[in-house]
Amino acid sequence: MEITLDIRKSLEENAGVYFEKAKKDKKKLEGAKKVVEKYKHKLSSLKEEKVEKQVVVKKKVKKEWYEKFRWFISSDGFLVIGGRDATTNEIVIKKYAEKNDLVFHTDMSGSPFVVIKNKKGEEISKSTINEAATFTAVFSRAWKQGMATLAVFSVKPEQVSKTPKPGEYLPKGAFMIYGNTTYYNPEMKYAIGIYQDKIMGGPLSAVKKNCKDFVEIMQGNQKLSDIAKLIKKKIGGELDDILRALPAGSKVKK
């Protein structure tokens, strides 16, 4: 290191100049160190934030075949499916109504066809039958009209036919019912909950049994999108899935 002395100044004055310069250089160095530490901390925070974002990636839940329909799991573990419209009514009956199943419908136009799936051929419990009847009534026009109940009937799959009586015509989603029917007058009690990471809407008794977190739904005229947002806030789930599970003419029970 070279030191240049000013011959016009004394030795003490020259030493003072270098002392002041050293002080300034030290301050600059300390400032530079602070800047480096600041950016190190910022970089570390960004890395942590990135890792955290990677960890919080939502798990994609596999869609089951029955989710394209209305569905719920009964309080006794039976899968119950129902049509959403004329097209899915056709599919539910033609493709998925099988031996040992039980089919539900109403005499009210526009009602869904609902099927209790019973692949094992077990005796279907009364609670499951009542829940399927409730499900059928809730997604009929009776719910939106504020009716307290609706007559719902059940038949075996072989009693449901696409063959009309002579001179009659069956539109898409409509079927002829032949033989004896059994009628029920279910309560209109409905709820939406989380079942195995999926949004499940169904009779209150079934949702209570299968879902830890749920919201009870009543007949009303609240905007469906507002209801869906409220449910999402309370129990989570995707808005689209919640909307698909909501019957028209509803409100959240307070």
Results as ranks from 00 to 15, higher is better:
Ile3Thr: 09
Ile3Val: 14
Thr4Asp: 06
Thr4Phe: 12
Leu5Pro: 02
Leu5Lys: 08
Leu5Met: 09
Ile7Gly: 03
Arg8Glu: 09
Arg8Ser: 10
Arg8Pro: 00
Lys9Asp: 07
Glu13Trp: 08
Gly16His: 09
Val17Phe: 12
Lys24Trp: 08
Asp25Leu: 14
Lys26Tyr: 11
Lys28Cys: 06
Leu29Glu: 10
Lys33Thr: 07
Lys34Glu: 11
Val35Gln: 07
Glu37Asp: 09
Glu37Gly: 02
Lys38Val: 03
Tyr39His: 11
Lys40Cys: 04
His41Glu: 11
Glu49His: 08
Lys50His: 12
Lys53Pro: 01
Lys53Arg: 14
Lys53Asn: 13
Lys53Ala: 10
Val56Ser: 10
Val56Thr: 13
Glu64Pro: 01
Trp65Thr: 00
Trp65Val: 03
Lys68Ile: 10
Lys68Glu: 09
Lys68Thr: 07
Trp71Arg: 01
Phe72Ile: 03
Ile73Trp: 06
Ser74Leu: 01
Ser74Tyr: 00
Ser75Leu: 01
Ser75Glu: 04
Asp76Phe: 04
Asp76Cys: 02
Asp76Gly: 02
Phe78Ser: 01
Val80Gln: 04
Ile81Trp: 00
Gly82Leu: 05
Thr88Ala: 10
Ile93Trp: 00
Tyr96Pro: 02
Tyr96Met: 07
Tyr96Leu: 10
Tyr96Glu: 09
Lys99Glu: 15
Phe104Leu: 10
His105Val: 11
Asp107Lys: 15
Gly110Pro: 09
Gly110Tyr: 11
Ser111Met: 05
Lys117Val: 10
Lys119Gly: 14
Lys120Thr: 11
Lys120Met: 13
Glu123Asp: 12
Asn130Met: 12
Glu131Ala: 04
Ala133Lys: 00
Phe135Gln: 05
Thr136Glu: 03
Thr136Trp: 02
Val138Pro: 00
Phe139Tyr: 12
Ala142His: 03
Trp143Glu: 03
Gly146Trp: 08
Leu150Met: 07
Leu150Phe: 06
Phe153Lys: 05
Phe153Glu: 01
Pro157Val: 13
Gln159Pro: 11
Val160Ala: 08
Val160His: 05
Ser161Asp: 09
Lys162Gly: 15
Thr163Asp: 15
Pro164Thr: 13
Pro164Asn: 09
Pro166Gly: 06
Pro166Ala: 14
Glu168Val: 07
Leu170Ser: 03
Pro171Asn: 06
Gly173Pro: 06
Ala174Phe: 15
Met176Trp: 12
Ile177Leu: 08
Asn180Gln: 13
Thr181Trp: 06
Thr181Gly: 03
Thr181Glu: 11
Glu187Tyr: 07
Ala191Thr: 02
Ala191Lys: 02
Tyr195Asn: 09
Gln196Ala: 12
Asp197Thr: 04
Asp197His: 13
Gly201Thr: 08
Pro203Glu: 01
Pro203Ile: 06
Ser205Gly: 01
Asp213Val: 04
Ile217Trp: 04
Ile217Pro: 01
Met218Gly: 07
Gln219Phe: 04
Gly220Met: 04
Asn221Gln: 05
Gln222His: 02
Lys223Thr: 04
Lys223Gln: 08
Ser225Ile: 11
Ile227His: 05
Lys229Ile: 08
Ile231Cys: 01
Ile231Gln: 03
Lys232Phe: 02
Lys233Glu: 14
Lys233Leu: 11
Lys234Thr: 12
Lys234Asn: 15
Gly236Arg: 00
Lys251Thr: 10
Lys253Pro: 02
